[in-house]
Design a protein around this nucleic acid. Structure first.
Lengths: 144, 144
DNA sequence: TTCTGTGCAAATGATTTGCAGCCAG
DNA sequence: CTGGCTGCAAATCATTTGCACAGAA
């Protein structure tokens, strides 16, 4: 399995685009992080390494990462787009606490199978899905 | 079962708010529609009846409808919030065609049950969920 | 009367885009 | 060289908010 940097280089090259130091830096910082990250968070972490990088570049690069398949864009319903790593990360859904915002990644094979079946029943071929379960986590319901 | 207008009146009264002609008009227009509607679409339809109604009032009223339980806010990932009627509509998930945007409402009891179980396993008490299945519909895959 | 609601316009906040110069291929 | 990049600031776009007046309870 190629390393993510190579995946990105290939994607960029194949699109006739260029590999720049900014893009490499943003990719590095992005890969170093776990979980979901908003563009602005990433921008701040990137600035910590190189203050000269512009916010627009981070936005533009995140789109490229998305296109290359290394990142996936998520929208949790607060007006901020978040991105999560998909490289070496298996698919998962989200279990979100409405009180504290805690975000747990979950997978259930049963759900995946049924989703496929539901789609097929309606003549759809499934390409992806987003499932967010909202609730109250143990900690929050205890301290309520 | 009370009619939706009564549900809204009660909600408004109980909150110490007032029932105004604008709110009634917006509610009427909203109820007359099927499917998912963005604030601006609703605003346009409302304006067709009464040009004097302001866009901000539509936004504000949609929030109230949401709070009253008559509407549910949805975010499909394009930066626009959409609302769908929940009155007399049972819960459902969405099956969305990536080519033509077709949006089919689906329910599967099996998924609902598993979702509950998954949440419980993580100590969460579930309050709601959003599930969007993305794929290509029969029509689009035929004409591809 | 007393607040709450409304329309309008200005304010927000995230994301995008135009531009002039820079640099990877 | 050349067309793609970058940083900056200005521009968008959906949504929110401040305000003075209007109107429901």
């Amino acid at each position: 399995m190629k390393d993510p940097v190579a995946v990105f280089s290939d994607y960029v090259a194949q699109k006739g685009l260029k590999m720049t130091p900014q893009r490499r830096l943003i990719l590095d910082v992005f890969l170093r992080e776990r979980g979901h990250m908003a563009s602005e968070e990433l921008y701040n972490k990137v600035k910590a390494v190189n203050k000269a990088v512009g916010q627009a570049t981070v936005y533009r690069t995140l789109k490229l990462l998305s296109g290359s398949g290394l990142a996936k864009e998520f929208d949790f319903g607060d007006g901020v787009s978040r991105y999560e790593q998909t490289y070496g990360h298996s698919h998962h859904d989200h279990l979100i606490c409405e009180r504290c915002g805690k975000n747990v990644e979950v997978v259930d094979q049963g759900i995946e199978v049924i989703q496929e079946r539901v789609a097929r029943e309606h003549g759809f071929s499934l390409t992806g899905h987003v499932m967010h379960l909202y609730g109250v986590c143990a900690d929050c319901s205890r301290s309520a």
